[in-house]
């Protein structure tokens, strides 16, 4: 494939060449979410602690995560960490770096969602003698998720697109694959347009879903 018969390659052949890249991008997104979502929630809990020795360091972490460009984070983990005696492979470095960035941004979404649950809910939980963890997991979080999920989906879409930064660590994800193939068949415009189309094919339906959920959420947000 590729090389020789480049001008005769059909769109579907080019697309087939890109699909493994898309699969890797989706895997990278999944790995990033698997780490980033719990971390974001954890940061939100840390941010809303009254105890300063918890909330202040968490805030510092969040600000660092948001203040540093994601690409710099990826480089620091992939090229920097080995100097500190810890090396991760390219895929994992990208997933971890993106997860830190994602968590830093979404911690505020989690925090706001949890804060939007009426105070009486927490009080009722306490008045029933429920342990704190049960109040959090069974009373507050389910109610907060209704508020949190639509904006979280929006962030997930942005970070799905941001997986293209893993290109810089030579992870053969969608963007990387499109570029590498283009360097062999010289169809830069076609390859990049196809990659863009694939990113959009995933992103646009999801952002429509997010908007739909948002509208439905605001209509039923009564109790």
């Amino acid at each position: 494939m590729g090389g020789a018969g480049m001008n005769t390659d059909s769109w579907s052949d080019l697309l087939a060449d890109l699909l493994p890249g898309l699969a890797l991008s989706l895997q990278l997104t999944a790995a990033m979410l698997a780490m980033g979502l719990p971390l974001g929630l954890l940061m939100a809990v840390g941010l809303s602690q009254k105890r300063k020795y918890v909330s202040v360091p968490t805030l510092a972490l969040v600000e660092i995560g948001r203040g540093i460009p994601a690409l710099v984070l990826l480089y620091m983990i992939y090229f920097g960490l080995p100097q500190a005696g810890m090396s991760l492979d390219a895929f994992l470095s990208a997933a971890v770096g993106l997860a830190i960035s994602f968590a830093s941004y979404t911690s505020e979404v989690f925090r706001a969602g949890l804060a939007a649950v009426p105070h009486g809910q927490r009080e009722a939980g306490h008045a029933l003698g429920l342990p704190r963890t049960v109040i959090f997991l069974r009373v507050l979080l389910p109610q907060a998720l209704k508020i949190i999920v639509p904006p979280l989906l929006g962030w997930a879409i942005i970070y799905f697109q941001a997986t293209s930064l893993a290109f810089a660590l030579a992870v053969p994800e969608l963007m990387s694959r499109a570029y590498v193939l283009a360097t062999t068949n010289f169809q830069y415009l076609n390859m990049l347009a196809l990659a863009a189309g694939l990113y959009a094919a995933i992103s646009i339906p999801l952002s429509l879903l997010s908007e739909h959920m948002n509208r439905r959420g605001s209509r039923t947000a009564t109790s």
């Binding site: 009426p118 009486g120 008045a127 342990p131 049960v134 069974r138 009373v139 389910p142 109790s223």
Partner: peptide, 26 residues
């Protein structure tokens, strides 16, 4: 036990689940 002015039932649970939660978890 306590009852509140604004009831404070858990809106994501049914009436029966509201009554069951603390029995099982507390």
């Amino acid at each position: 036990g306590m009852c509140f002015q604004s009831f404070n039932l858990f809106p994501h649970l049914t009436a029966l689940e509201n009554i069951m939660l603390a029995q099982t978890k507390a």
